[in-house]
Design a protein around this nucleic acid. Structure first.
Length: 565
RNA sequence: GCACUCUUAGCUCAGCUGGAUAGAGCAUCGGUUUGCGGUACCGAAGGUCGUGAGUUCGAAUCUCGCAGGGUGUACCA
């Protein structure tokens, strides 16, 4: 239900009938319930253009408004605000059809595009740490959201599988893995041990350097070792994805090494376009307005990550055919992406109409506002954080005796992981945020547990009722009216969140929806004695649509729901 | 130095393309109960939106200056 555009159409129609030859601005949600459901603020803006009093303009718009279908009432207020009320009958039928639709009334895009979402991007030399959480879940949410809205989404996991450190790592792997059963359970430790050996043992260090060259020149033995190492390391990541309920598969992996062959071509074609300059022996692109150049080839002939990113941009735009390419990467790389995007466009690797965007996000901080670290200052492994979340979640479960142990584990997993994800996704992605266990595992405020509780509470109504639901939705009081309107806004909200790539718009919406439902439910009994059958049926259906919408919203965030908790 | 970014209630955060008296949650104080899940709901109190100017009928939102914090700044990714 594209609610806003329905209303905009009516306004536009009124403009035409009133003889106003300007494109109306979009309506917005009313800032207060007293002001109706939507408001149109365009009359004031037109005042100067038309040389008329804004209230008079508002008056002539209102006179021509169609109040027979979608809208039922319009009022002029203050200097020329037009407050609009939706027709309760219309709302009711729309909710009814949303309820019958498995997409809860959300249509699919008329003009879907191909979108590449680049996210997660772990380094294969190390274990995933908390720094990877945000990219992974924000990216996954964006990919889920765009997919749901109908775009063709290509997920790309740009893993770091190339670089000098792999020479050392595979040399060490070869040394330790005589029987072929090394699991690299602790990659951090493995890396440290290898580094220790590298520093202490000159022979080993030489071998490590030799292996770097050998991988690059395609030596079969070294390549096999490397592949084995990557395979095991990727397996660890997949374990994390599985726990996180993140939709990244082997097929989505397009590693750094994938672009190796394209790197010389990138530099060549830049040379051909004369954007390139040599400086201190390195091949550089000097962008106007930037002090420092972007180096695409080192003095020793090696390539850098800017080169790889340029190759990836070309590949994604030209080979994959993406019209929107979204990089979900830490905000600290803003400068890098700005430069790389500019080069890609100027050099024609990516055509003008392709939208390149850096979906930047802030850093996760601890309670004292410092970057999140372990007690001894090390990085926190993501898997440890998630395991801890599950343990803590278990403590929040009431009436444990009602469940079998496996059920409790399953429940704790959903709740714990959901809490971590929700807490992260509910923060405006661009700001840094403070990681707080107590807050995220609280039932109060905009938390996943409040959402879960609201959902479970509705499910409990249906467990209790458990009979066919007939009849239709009828909007009774103001609270029902607001709840129903809120439900119909779902698609507008998702579209907006997709454009801005901001998951927190979804959580904010869901929280408002859940709060509204709780209030509605508090005031309007459903199954209590004395509720008329027709009213009961109507309210049951509103409750049902609320639950479905919450479930769908959380599903986009990659958070599962439970019927009982 | 330069560039980017942030600064909203005691705390943690919303605030969409500029719109009416700036909103939540926590904490504080008070209320609702023979409760369809009270892990809920209602209310009070709490803000010169860092600061100074500008644009505008109208600015937390746009522009500029200043202060304070964060980040980035040529051969790592």
């Amino acid at each position: 239900m594209k609610l806003k555009s329905h209303i905009n159409d009516i306004i536009k129609d009124a403009f035409t009938k009133a003889g106003i030859a300007h494109e109306p601005m979009s309506v917005s949600e009313a800032s207060k319930p007293e002001f109706g459901d939507y408001q149109f603020n365009g009359a004031m803006a037109l005042s100067k253009k038309l040389g008329k009093n804004p209230r008079a303009i508002a008056q002539s718009i209102v006179e021509h408004l169609d109040l027979t279908g979608v809208l039922s009432k319009a009022e002029i207020a203050g200097p020329g605000f037009i407050n609009l009320w939706l027709n309760p009958l219309w709302i009711a039928t729309q909710c009814q059809s949303a309820l019958e639709d498995e997409r809860v009334g959300v249509s699919t895009k008329e003009n879907p595009i191909k979108v590449v979402v680049d996210y997660s991007g772990p380094n294969m030399a190390k274990q995933m740490h908390v720094g990877h959480l945000r990219s992974t879940i924000i990216g996954d949410t964006l990919a889920n959201l765009l997919t749901f809205l109908g775009d063709e989404v290509i997920r790309q996991n740009h893993i770091g599988d190339w670089g000098t450190q792999f020479g050392m790592l595979i040399a060490y792997l070869e040394m330790k893995d005589e029987d072929g059963t090394v699991t690299l359970k602790d990659l951090e430790q493995f890396y440290k041990d290898a580094k220790g050996e590298f520093d202490a043992n000159a022979d080993f260090a030489n071998k490590a350097r030799e292996y770097v060259v050998k991988i690059q020149s395609g030596d079969a033995h070294c390549l096999n070792l490397w592949k084995k190492f990557i395979d095991i390391s990727l397996g660890h990541c997949e374990e994390v994805y599985e726990k996180l309920n993140v939709n990244l598969m082997r097929d989505d992996v397009r590693a750094e090494s994938f672009y190796n062959d394209m790197l010389p071509k990138v530099v060549d074609s830049l040379t051909g376009k004369s954007i390139l300059q040599e400086s201190d022996g390195a091949q550089c692109v000097f962008l106007e307005g930037d002090e420092v150049p972007v180096i695409v080839q080192k003095a020793d002939g090696g390539y850098l990550y800017a080169t790889t990113d340029l190759a990836a941009l070309w590949y994604r735009a030209e080979v994959l055919g993406a019209k929107r390419i979204s990089y979900v990467v830490d905000a600290r790389q803003a400068g890098h992406f700005k430069q790389v995007f500019r080069i890609a466009k100027e050099a024609g690797f990516v055509s003008e109409e392709v939208k390149l965007e850096h979906i930047a996000f802030g850093t996760m901080m601890d309670k004292s506002g410092k970057p999140f670290k372990t007690r001894d200052g090390g990085t926190v492994k993501l898997i440890d954080l998630l395991d801890e979340a599950v343990i803590k979640a278990k403590e929040t479960i009431n009436n444990k005796e009602e469940y079998a142990p496996e059920q409790i584990d399953e429940l704790a997993k959903i709740i714990g992981i959901g809490a971590v994800k929700y807490a992260d996704l509910s923060i405006n992605r661009e700001s840094n945020y403070i990681f707080n266990w107590d807050k995220m595992l609280s039932f109060e405020g905009n938390t996943s547990l409040y959402m879960q509780y609201a959902y479970a509470r509705i499910q409990s109504i249906f467990r209790k009722y458990n009979a066919p639901i007939e009849g239709s939705i009828v909007i009774g009081d103001a609270l029902e009216h607001r709840l129903a309107t809120m439900l119909l806004r779902f698609e507008d909200l998702l579209s907006r969140a997709a454009v801005d790539a901001s998951p927190n718009q979804i959580t904010t919406y869901l929280y408002e929806l859940a709060t509204l439902f709780m209030r509605f439910y508090e005031q309007n009994p459903i199954l209590k004695d004395g509720v008329e059958e027709e009213v009961k049926m109507s309210r049951l259906q509103l409750a049902n649509l609320t639950a479905k919408t919450i479930k769908q919203g959380l599903d986009i965030l990659g958070i599962k729901v439970v019927d009982k908790l």
